[in-house]
Design a protein around this nucleic acid. Structure first.
Lengths: 249, 249
DNA sequence: CGAAAACTTGACCCAACTCAACGAACGTGG
DNA sequence: CCACGTTCGTTGAGTTGGGTCAAGTTTTCG
């Protein structure tokens, strides 16, 4: 969409979408020391139990996910992140990681010094408020996932995840209305919804057979958003879109 | 445990357990305007979709839970809260509630003015840091619940919840090592674990039959913590106990 | 072009659900 | 403080959504 911009501009944009920032706030963010880094698909950014790294990273391109394992080795993806998302806010304040973070696709990040960012969060009220909004929306999504995985059947669950993706990617200009490239394998979809890949496959086929979605490779399109939304029991409320508008610019 | 103290002292204690507070920080908290309020079991404190109330409440006695409903009316409890927990941090920064909050037992709260608390969070770094730690631990618990509900079988799931309770209540001095009063019906346990009350009942009986737990009314005791913990696939890591020590005092 | 990863499909199975009835505990008012 | 209605817990019988296992097929990518 936008031409390539300095990585920190993306962070400014993200935070400005969460809370009004003054010129000084923007300048303070743009002055943060940072490095950029690229990860291959499946590469680990953070491992459970690790002490915090000295850097806090956010996505400048690609997708990542958070994940936890049971003792038996079954995996649950607990959230998915895309362009502009901050990946380890936790590490700014917690003493060890409670989950794993992995690249989903090839992933570009910018990593800013934790101490510097923490200082901004605590001393510049507008930046602090923006980060609070961001973290609280994350928490809201997590609660919705508990509901999704705990109380919806496979069909609804998958459809719900597809709707969340449609909305979030749409906001970012990745994909257009009702059509986007899903950057996940069916096994990963299963891990995100608490299902097996086999059942994900059958469920996707069933949704397609009912004309709700159309699939071509990993490209997904919805024939009728309202119908899918109804099947998915999806309401965008939990995404707090009114507090995550991409800035006009 | 402690003799009755002014409600805000409880908030100070909670935040001080999350991050070191100076005398000035404590004084600022104690100076917050507040009212106390009592709710009957099942009373709603917050309803999904509501605009934020002007008050932010925390628990001074009793239990509460957060809950979301599917379109079909099935319920998922997404978190449970006890003495000292802050109930609607979200409302400090988000424009509408994304879930319901209900009293689980008879519940005493203190409600402080949102604006005043928000100001403290944004302008007093130590208080801000304490609130960040608190919110991030909440988010960590939510991720663990996604895993619990998404990838564990009924037996493990229930046992895990019982372990979480044991640890959290133990910390608060509610109940002693391996024995506490579970303030939930089996239906509520089901809503918290994504199971039906019938299956919760069978699972509890099976855990008891195997000598892992002992039940008397709603009182629960663990015969062997290590065994239950193993069955539950429980590790306290996600509770970040090293950052939630009750203050020595 | 060839190997590996991802996707499909079928047959069978089982953990958890549903429905239904009954017993135990609780709390509320007379 | 007892009666009785209501909520909560318990149990059985039968069902089913989603899992497992296993064998292809298609896609991807080096």
């Amino acid at each position: 969409m936008s031409t390539s911009q300095p990585p920190l501009a993306k962070l400014v944009r993200k935070l400005a979408s969460r809370h009004r920032l003054e010129e000084e706030d923007r300048a303070a963010i743009l002055a943060l020391p940072y490095v950029t880094r690229t990860y291959e698909p499946a590469a680990y950014l953070v491992r459970e139990g690790e002490p915090p790294r000295r850097h806090c990273s956010f996505i400048t391109a690609g997708f990542a996910f958070r994940q936890k394992l049971t003792i038996q080795g079954t995996r649950q993806i607990v959230s998915i992140h895309m362009d502009g998302d901050i990946l380890d806010l936790q590490h700014l304040f917690l003493k060890h990681a409670d989950h794993n973070v992995q690249a989903l696709t090839r992933l570009d990040t910018a990593e800013v010094e934790s101490d510097a960012l923490q200082a901004l969060a605590l001393t510049r009220p507008a930046i602090g408020a923006a980060m609070w909004v961001d973290a609280l929306i994350d928490a809201s999504i997590s609660r919705e996932w508990v509901l999704n995985v705990g109380r919806r059947d496979a069909r609804t669950r998958i459809a719900h995840l597809l709707c969340e993706f449609a909305v979030r990617m749409g906001r970012l200009g990745l994909g257009t209305e009702g059509r986007y490239e899903l950057p996940m394998t069916q096994e990963q979809l299963g891990d995100a919804t608490g299902l097996t890949s086999v059942h994900v496959n059958r469920t996707l086929k069933s949704l397609a057979a009912d004309g709700l979605i159309h699939r071509d490779r990993r490209y997904l399109s919805f024939s009728d958003w309202e119908k899918v939304r109804a099947v998915a029991d999806f309401s965008g409320l939990y995404l707090h879109l009114d507090q995550s508008l991409p800035p006009a610019e």
